[in-house]
Design a protein around this nucleic acid. Structure first.
Lengths: 340, 340
DNA sequence: ACTAGCACTCATGATGGTTGAGTGCCAAGG
DNA sequence: CCTTGGCACTCAACCATCATGAGTGCTAGT
C-alpha cells in the first residue's frame, strides 16, 4: 500500500468515525487535502476494498471500514495524542482523591470511564487468589449462628453466616479464631484453602463444622473472583444508530450480564502490560462482533491484578479513547497501591 | 357507571393488556360476551372516554385505558388470583433454599422478580439504623493503615480503611476494639454514633483518630442505606413497543440509575403492609409517568424493613403480577427472618 | 498515471391511491 | 328512552410509482 492510499484510508476512517455515515469518493477527495480527482480516489478505494480494508454497505453508498481496516488504522496510521490536561485533572479528581476504600475506587473508575467515553466502562476487579490471609474472626450472632469474617492484606473483607449444630460461646469462637489465625494466617488464600482441606480430612473435631464453612467461604471468595467485574453505562449503546434498534443490542446486553465469556476474554488481555484492542470479530466472541473493546491492565505494587476499559461500537474515537483508558488504568493502579 | 359499562371496561382493559393494541367497538362487542351491537358499545365507550377512563390515540384507532382507567380496573374490577402452585414452588426454590446470606437472598429475590415478570425487579434493602452493633474490630493491615470492621446483630458487615498518623500494634488495636465493644456494643447503630460523637468532643486521645474514623464508617452505613436498592432486568423494557424507541426510555434508565427519587417513593410505600400500586402519573415522578410500579413491603421478625416489586409499563398483567410480588415479599421476609 | 465522462445502481423521500379499522351521528324501531 | 343499523368521515398503514442525488465501475482520452 503506497503513501497515498494510506493517507486516504486514514482520512476516510477519521471522517467515518466523526460522522458515522459511509464516505464517498467526492467528499474524501475534497477533505483529504491531496489534489486529486474523485475518480482517482475511486480507483484507490476499489483497491482498498479488494484488500479487505473497506466495504460498501450497498452499491451506491460510500464505503466504511471493516474490522481489518480499523485494525490497520490503529496499528499503523493512528498517532495517539496524550491525554488532555483537562481530562487528566478530571481523572485525578475522580479517582485520585477518593476515600481510601478499594471498592469505592473501583466503582469510581468504572463510572468515569463510562462518562467520559459515552460507552460502557468496565473494571475487572483484582484477583484475590494470591492475597495473604491477614485475619479471621468468628462472631456469635445468635444461637446456632456464627458469622465468619476473612480479611486479606489488601483490605478485602468477606463474610459468611454459618449455621451450627452446637451453640458456641464467645470464648470458644475466639479460641477457634486464634487457632485459625496462628495456623493459616499470613499465607496466600489459595494455600490456606489447600492446607485446610488436607487438615480437615485427618481430624474430627467439634469445631470442624465451623472450619469447614470457613473453608467454603474462602473457596467462594476465589470462585467469586472468576466472575467479579463492574460494568456501567451500557445504556449509552442506546444512542448508537449502528447498535440500537436491532436484536444485536439485546444479545449484547444479555452477554454482558452473563459475564462469563467476557471475563475470560479480559483475563487473556491481562498478560501484556499495554493498552489492548479487540476490534469486531477479533474477540472471537459472537455478541461482540460489532463492537470494539479497549482494555488496559492495571497494576498494584508492581503486579498486574486486573484490567479495565470500555466496550463500544467499532466506530469509536480511538485517538481519545486509548489514552483515556491508559490513563485511567495507571491512576487506578496508583490509587490502589497507595491505599493497599 | 352501570354494570354493563363496568363489564365493557373490564373486558376492554383485559384485551388491551393481552394484545397491546387499541381496542375497537366491533372486537369488544364480540369478545365481551354481551349480546350487544358495536354501535351500542361505541356509545358506552364514548361515555367512558368522557369520564376519563379511556382515550383514543387518534381519531380512527380503538381506545386504550388511561391511568384512571387502570386504577379503577385494579381497584374495582380485578379479581386477583392466588399464585399458581408452579410459580410458588419456583419462588420457594429460588428464595427459600438459598445460602443463609442476606445479601445473596436479596439478589435472588431481585432476579426472580425480573425473570418471572419480564420487567425490572427491585428490592429496597433493609435499613440498618435500628440494628444493634454487635462487634467492632480494628486490624492493622500495614504501617499507618488500620481496617475497621463493624458487625451488626443481623450479620451486616461493613468495613473501612483508616489511614493513621501513628503506627498501632496489634495489642493497641485489640485494646481499642475491646474498649469500643464494651462501651458501645449491644446498642442500636444510631445511638452508637450519637454517643461516640458526644464522647469524642470531651476526650483527646491518641486513639481518637481511629474512633473518629470508626464513627464516620458508622455514619456512612446509615448514609448508604438511604440509597441502597437492587434493581435488575431493566433490559426487558427494550422489548416493549410502548417504551422502546423513544427518549422516554433513556430518561427512565437515567432516573432508575439515579435512584434518589425512586427510593423516596418506595419508602413512602413502606408505610402500609399491603401490595401497593403506582399507576402512571400517580407516582408524581415524571420519568415514571408511562410506567406502573407494583410494590410490597416485607417484614423481618414482624417489623417492616424494606420493600420490593417491579417496574414496568402501565399495560402489565396485574392479575399475575400482584400475587407474585406479594408472594415474593412474604417469602423474602421469611427467608431473612430465619437467617437473621 | 490521472481525469473526465457516462451509464448504472440504489437508498431516500415525496406523492398519491387504496384498504381497513374505527368513529360520530342520526334516524328508525323496540 | 335505549338500542340498532346505516352512513359519511377520518386516519394510519400499506403499496406502487417516481424523481433525486450520491456514489460506483468502466472506458477512453490526455
Amino acid at each position: 500500500m503506497d503513501e497515498r492510499a494510506r493517507h486516504l484510508l486514514k482520512s476516510l476512517i477519521e471522517q467515518h468515525i466523526a460522522k458515522g455515515v459511509p464516505v464517498g469518493s467526492r467528499q474524501l477527495a475534497r477533505d483529504a487535502g491531496l489534489n486529486i480527482s474523485p475518480a482517482t480516489v475511486r480507483n484507490v478505494m476499489a483497491d482498498l476494498e479488494d484488500e479487505g480494508y473497506l466495504i460498501s454497505p450497498h452499491a451506491s453508498a460510500g464505503r466504511i471500514p471493516t474490522h481489518v481496516g480499523y485494525r490497520f488504522f490503529v496499528d499503523a496510521l493512528l498517532r495517539v495524542v496524550p491525554l488532555s490536561a483537562e481530562s487528566n485533572r478530571l481523572l485525578i479528581h475522580r479517582i485520585g482523591f477518593r476515600a481510601p476504600d478499594a471498592e469505592q475506587v473501583l466503582h469510581a473508575a468504572t463510572g468515569i470511564l463510562s462518562e467520559l467515553t459515552h460507552m460502557a466502562g468496565f473494571v475487572r476487579v483484582p484477583r484475590r487468589a494470591t492475597r495473604i490471609l491477614r485475619h479471621v474472626d468468628f462472631i456469635a450472632l445468635r444461637e446456632h449462628e456464627v458469622l465468619a469474617i476473612f480479611v486479606t492484606d489488601k483490605g478485602d473483607v468477606e463474610n459468611r453466616l454459618i449455621r451450627t449444630e452446637h451453640s458456641f460461646g464467645a470464648a470458644d469462637l475466639a479460641q477457634a479464631a486464634n487457632f485459625f489465625n496462628a495456623t493459616y494466617g499470613g499465607r496466600p488464600l489459595q494455600d490456606v484453602i489447600h492446607n485446610l482441606q488436607r487438615d480437615l480430612q485427618q481430624s474430627r473435631h467439634e469445631m470442624d463444622r465451623i472450619l469447614r464453612s470457613a473453608m467454603e467461604l474462602g473457596e467462594e471468595m476465589l470462585e467469586e473472583d472468576q466472575q467479579r467485574m463492574l460494568i456501567e453505562g451500557e445504556f449509552h449503546w442506546l444512542d448508537l444508530p449502528e447498535l440500537a434498534g436491532s436484536e444485536r443490542l439485546r444479545e449484547l446486553l444479555a452477554a454482558v450480564r452473563q459475564k462469563r465469556d467476557l471475563v475470560h476474554l479480559l483475563d487473556e488481555s491481562m498478560r501484556g502490560s499495554e493498552v489492548r484492542l479487540f476490534i469486531g470479530e477479533e474477540s472471537g466472541y459472537a455478541p461482540l462482533s460489532d463492537c470494539s473493546v479497549v482494555s488496559a491492565p492495571y497494576s498494584v505494587d508492581g503486579e498486574v491484578v486486573g484490567v479495565l476499559g470500555v466496550i463500544g461500537p467499532m466506530r469509536m474515537p480511538y485517538q481519545q479513547i486509548i489514552p483515556l483508558v491508559d490513563g485511567t488504568a495507571q491512576l487506578l493502579g496508583r490509587a490502589l497501591s497507595q491505599s493497599g
